[in-house]
């Protein structure tokens, strides 16, 4: 097995007012390629901080973050942005679609950073919208879609540039049970059929059951690590 993500003695602290708050206390972690990791833990345990570090949205106070053989903890802001565009697909709790754009235009946004032609971009967008089952809603704006549909558009946006890693921050946190199940089935299918590596932060034990590995964080340290047999 190849580790696609490696965290080595990662510490992260924030300055809140005059006080320094240490969120992660020297975490070591390896995530294998094609793994579906469910990251759980109470509020303030450092789940989102760890996700942000893996996704290159933030940088550790100390330690190493290696993703796909690249040490990203030393990259500049510009280089990190470029790296994210090529390697990371994001799925947020509140979808974070651009409200003024249609579903297809939202999905196209990450492709604007590539060298693909307009026709190629359109073709890819149609393909992923079909994959998430929303080809018929391509021209709809986010406010014309249900929460579940918006999250599907967000998933399409996350996978359209074929990233190395999908990171999901509470992807079902804003959805009803049925929509949540649909979204989790979709993520699981992406993991199983397309081999996408997924790191998902969740509070929901039902969502975590879809993951092939469950990791618990508590007070900035790994507390429990369990692999599930498919």
């Amino acid at each position: 097995m190849t580790a696609i993500v490696s965290l080595r003695n990662v510490k992260k602290s924030y300055l809140r007012g005059k006080q320094t708050v240490e969120v992660l206390h020297g975490v070591d972690l390896e995530i294998q390629a094609s793994e579906f990791l469910g990251l759980m833990g109470p509020s303030g345990s450092g789940k989102t901080t760890m996700l942000n570090l893996i996704a290159g949205l933030d940088q550790p106070t100390s330690g190493e973050v290696v993703v796909s053989d690249k040490r990203i903890d030393k990259l500049s802001r510009g280089a990190l942005a470029d790296w994210r565009a090529r390697h990371i697909g994001f799925i947020f709790q509140f979808y974070n679609l651009l409200p003024v754009l249609t579903a297809e235009a939202n999905v196209e946004v990450p492709l604007l950073l590539t060298n693909l032609s307009r026709a190629q971009r359109r073709e890819r967008v149609q393909t992923v919208l079909q994959l998430v089952g929303l080809a018929d809603r391509a021209k709809h704006k986010p406010n014309e879609l249900s929460g579940g549909q918006q999250q599907r558009v967000a998933i399409a946006r996350a996978i359209v540039a074929d990233p190395t890693l999908l990171v999901c921050d509470e992807p079902t946190g804003d959805l009803d049970r049925q929509s949540a199940e649909e979204i989790m089935n979709l993520l699981q299918a992406l993991n199983r059929t397309q081999g996408k590596t997924i790191v998902m932060v969740t509070h929901d034990p039902r969502a975590a059951e879809y993951a092939s590995r469950e990791l618990h964080l508590d007070k900035g340290q790994l507390a429990h690590d369990a692999r599930r047999v498919a």
Binding site: G78, A81, D82, N96, L98
Partner: peptide
């Protein structure tokens, strides 16, 4: 979100 998706600061 744009920055998250890879849009650089500039």
């Amino acid at each position: 979100v744009l920055k998250t998706l890879g849009f650089a600061d500039g």
